[in-house]
């Protein structure tokens, strides 16, 4: 068992699972929180992530295949995706590639939403690229919803990730994302106006005062 990544929430180990190269994702205990809350969160998120991965796989969303869930140790064993994080790749991509990847990403997220699923933590750190193939990971905060709000939060989080980490190209990438998203999700327009509302809800947002129209800023 080789530790390949120590995130804030979980540790990732590279293991051999009956001959398959696999990742074991273990949600580690946090000393700062009391045990009952700690167990509740780890248990809920492990179970939730496994369920989400299995369910969205059924509608052909590209995610790692779940091999095993070991609830006693709050871990999931899943397919090892040998690629790179979108966040790390962005600086090396040219405009054409950005267009292709973000349009495609938009399509995938649109399809996810069209089927009633949301991701809950959709950022460029949770997208893996193998050549041009996209994989979504980290579904611990995901779920099923009938409401536009949850989908709006997904799109808002992606926009925010782009703005805070890749601000020079954020607008462009978000345009590509929207193109793909609109092509696969029938309620995409409602979602985009929801994103505006979510942004205005934030604290000390200048736009909150202005009666923003859909075109007033970047969306």
């Amino acid at each position: 068992m080789k530790l390949i990544k120590k995130g804030a929430e979980a540790e990732l180990y590279l293991i051999n699972w009956f001959g398959y190269k696999a990742i074991k994702k273990v949600r580690v205990s946090k000393n700062y929180r009391i045990q009952s809350l700690d167990n509740f969160l780890r248990n809920y998120r492990t179970l939730n992530e496994a369920k989400m991965l299995i369910n969205v796989k059924r509608i052909n969303i590209p995610v790692p295949t779940v091999f095993d869930v070991i609830l006693e140790e709050f871990s999931i064993v899943m397919e090892f995706i040998d690629g790179k994080l979108l966040k790390d790749l962005i600086p090396q991509l040219d405009d054409e590639m950005l267009d292709e990847i973000f349009t495609n990403l938009g399509c995938i997220v649109g399809r996810l939403h069209e089927n009633g699923f949301f991701h809950g933590d959709l950022t460029t750190s949770n997208v893996i690229l193998v050549d041009k193939n996209i994989f979504l990971i980290d579904f611990g905060l995901g779920g099923v919803s009938q409401e536009i709000e949850a989908f709006g939060v997904d799109v808002h989080l992606m926009l925010r990730a782009l703005e805070s980490t890749h601000h020079e190209i954020s607008q462009k990438c978000f345009e590509y994302f929207k193109n793909g998203y609109s092509s696969t999700f029938s309620k995409s327009k409602e979602v985009f106006s929801k994103v505006l509302e979510i942004r205005r809800r934030g604290r000390y947002v200048v736009e909150r005062r202005v009666k923003a129209t859909i075109n007033s800023f970047c969306i």
Partner: peptide
């Protein structure tokens, strides 16, 4: 416990990031 754990989770993630 609940409120502080929320802040701590976000803090830890920001720290790693």
């Amino acid at each position: 416990e609940t409120a502080f754990s929320m802040v701590c989770e976000v803090t830890e993630r920001a720290l790693v990031h």
